[in-house]
Design a binder for these strands. Structure first.
Lengths: 213, 213
DNA sequence: CGAGATTTTGAAAAATTTCAACATTCGTGG
DNA sequence: CCACGAATGTTGAAATTTTTCAAAATCTCG
């Protein structure tokens, strides 16, 4: 597994972020994180931002009894690590073998101009996810999740889920069993197909879309 | 009612934002919004940011069948209105008679430096609220809400809720009935007192705190 | 192939919502 | 200033959704 991951790392082509090219001079060397390893922990001093070049990241928070809420997944091309007070308020872990480029903040006002749109996009995304968690049923949550993942993977009808059912549950505010049942029901009704555990075909995308208006 | 509101407006002392004084030259005249009136709507062109000087604001999203999720309340001193793509993704309304100062964005990099911390703080707040909606029980949600409102009102033990039970429900992802029942139970058990419908005394704050670790 | 981990499925339990009725509060106008 | 009516809030009981607990099935990887 380590071998496999290292190979993926060697072959990776760094992804360019969507934003302006102002990043270039702030890039650090590519860092590799094996699946399941911590990128930062809540309470740690924040060092800056991270650009995902390959793999996937989960950002989450814990309650003292172990309940976990994943606030976001980050896929290649996305930037995460925004934190207030210079302190991390969340945990971040690699879900799969993951490549990250650290982006050091500078006092530079250009830096703020470059990252503000990213921070705002993250804010809008988080607030939209509040609607899912606060007001949608289990089925609607899963539908919204699948469509979101598809949109972030080029809007193809076949998508790969880098995360486990447990991760999906902790992102959608559901138990793993409920997630599994919804997947099964969607499969039974022909809305999706499941060629593999982590592979989903959106066979009838319009029905999924109708589920989360 | 209009008269009363206008009076409040005339007497209001604009609140200074927590951030740097870079705002000063970007301030617009104070705008008044009567209770229940729209500040902006989803889909509208975003004009800039708003500083609340008095009153309170709710920012929310709707599903097509009318379900509503309030993603944030904004109290005096707070700034809201961050939007991606130059378009509003949410609705904003005055909850009570409210004073707002518009803050026009400038291409100015100083502007980005000034608002980035505010956007990041909003992002952290939204992601923390995801934990509440995704993983906490009704009682825990209400406890977290009361403590948050207290923290934002100077951490006194008596707080004023500018919003209705319906708004609280739509913020916490609960029905109004569930919110009401939790309030009643907290009152019965002596954790809070309710001198008025919109006034809450946190009689045993440590118990509330214990509810949302 | 086989052991451990992950996922699926079922049935009972728990939490929240829904529906309905009643109580209280607020603002207006007499 | 009080009374009335509408809006808001509270309470109860049944219905629904999701969770919990338990067990079986499937997948992964060495």
């Amino acid at each position: 597994m380590i071998l496999h991951s290292a190979k993926a790392f060697a072959n990776a082509k760094p992804v360019e972020p969507a934003g302006p090219a102002v990043w270039a001079h702030q890039r650090q060397p590519l860092a590799f994180h094996a699946a399941g390893t911590e990128i930062y922990a809540q309470g740690e001093r924040a060092e800056g931002l991270y650009l995902v070049t390959f793999g996937a990241v989960r950002v989450y928070r814990l309650l003292s009894d172990g309940r976990r809420q994943i606030s976001a997944f980050h896929l290649p091309g996305e930037v995460f690590g925004f934190e207030a007070d210079g302190t991390h308020h969340f945990f971040a872990e690699a879900i799969a073998a993951t490549g990250l480029q650290a982006i050091k903040p500078t006092a530079d006002a250009d830096f703020a101009s470059a990252v503000l749109p990213l921070a705002v996009a993250g804010l809008v995304r988080a607030q939209e996810h509040l609607l899912v968690l606060g007001r949608q049923s289990a089925r609607e949550r899963v539908a919204a999740f699948l469509l979101d993942m598809a949109a972030r993977q080029g809007d193809l009808d076949e998508i790969e889920l880098p995360m486990s059912r447990t991760d999906i549950g902790d992102y959608l505010g559901l138990t793993i069993e409920t997630v599994s049942r919804v997947f099964s029901r969607l499969k039974e009704t022909g809305v999706i197909r499941l060629p593999g555990l982590r592979s989903v075909v959106l066979a009838r995308r319009n029905i999924l879309e109708g589920m989360c208006e």
